[in-house]
């Protein structure tokens, strides 16, 4: 049984297109803005979304997402509101939604309960940045039972053996982390190393591989596009949202910002 995420990835693959995914912090700048942003950005050509549940101690995140998480928590973001956001999006759209959460908020609700609630509220997948293979294996059947794709992350430090294992264990796609480090916009990436890493991953993994961490400019896309199946943009967009005064302006600015990425990712000039 394919869920919305898996179906979307399959469609993209069949039509030879790259995937484009955005990360948004749930409740930043407000819960209503998150719902509106998803709906507007989907129309602008974004394929699916990661909705980050803010956590007090996000060790894999850089300053930008730390700030947006803190602001969202201060404004009262909580688990129930995350479910409301997903349900509100589902009333308007069938775009695939992935929850991004650290382990503890899910563990705290009880893994089974949390996974079921996420699925029932309209999420199609989960990315849990501090849940490595060794810890996620015992939970695999729970995710499968609830038709929630557990997307595994792959790092430049992962051994070839881990790459193969992660490729086998992941669902939907594999999230390739571009550099050693935390999330955050970087002007440039070590392109030869990142491409080398992507090539290694691709030769061992049959699922689509998407690249995230460090993207900030559309000019980066053509330098990496040949070796991956799509891109994930996060902190750079959050930075744009830090300077908006209204929900309407948030959507306008975000659409404006992602447009050149959509264009660049959609171009059919791949030289693998």
């Amino acid at each position: 049984m394919h869920n919305r995420l898996e179906k979307k990835l399959l469609d993209l693959k069949r039509s030879g297109k790259k995937a484009f995914s955005l990360f948004l912090t749930a409740g930043f700048p407000s819960p209503e803005a998150t719902v509106n942003l998803v709906c507007q950005l989907e129309k602008a050509g974004v394929d699916f979304f990661e909705i980050g549940f803010p956590f007090s101690d996000p060790i894999a995140d850089g300053p930008t997402i730390q700030r947006s998480s803190e602001a969202a928590l201060k404004a009262g973001m909580n688990w129930e509101k995350l479910m409301e956001i997903a349900r509100a999006i589902r009333q308007q759209s069938d775009v695939p939604l992935i929850v991004m959460s650290y382990s503890n908020p899910l563990f705290c609700k009880g893994w089974e309960n949390a996974i079921r609630q996420l699925s029932q509220s309209g999420f199609d997948g989960a990315i849990i940045p501090d849940l490595v293979l060794e810890e996620s294996r015992p939970l695999k059947s729970l995710f499968q039972k609830n038709n929630l794709a557990l997307v595994q992350l792959l790092a430049p430090t992962s051994s070839l053996q881990r790459m193969s294992e992660i490729g086998k264990e992941s669902s939907g796609f594999v999230y390739c982390v571009s550099v050693t480090g935390v999330t955050g916009a970087r002007k440039d990436l070590p392109y030869p190393e990142t491409n080398d890493f992507l090539k290694k991953a691709r030769s061992r993994i049959s699922l689509p591989i998407l690249l995230g961490f460090g993207l900030s400019r559309p000019e980066q896309i053509p330098l990496l596009k040949g070796n991956c199946d799509g891109f994930i943009l996060g902190s750079a967009l959050i930075r744009v949202l830090e300077n908006v005064s209204s929900r309407l302006q948030a959507a306008q600015k975000a659409v404006q910002f992602v447009h050149p990425f959509v264009r660049e990712i959609g171009k059919e000039n791949r030289h693998d």
């Binding site: 501090d130 430090t157 992962s158 051994s159 982390v177």
Partner: peptide, 19 residues
């Protein structure tokens, strides 16, 4: 797996797992 009964384990980003 680094567990003392039900406690312990290794909950880290993948980047650190090989380290």
């Amino acid at each position: 797996r680094g567990y003392f009964g039900e406690f312990g384990g290794r909950f880290v980003p993948e980047t650190l797992a090989p380290a």
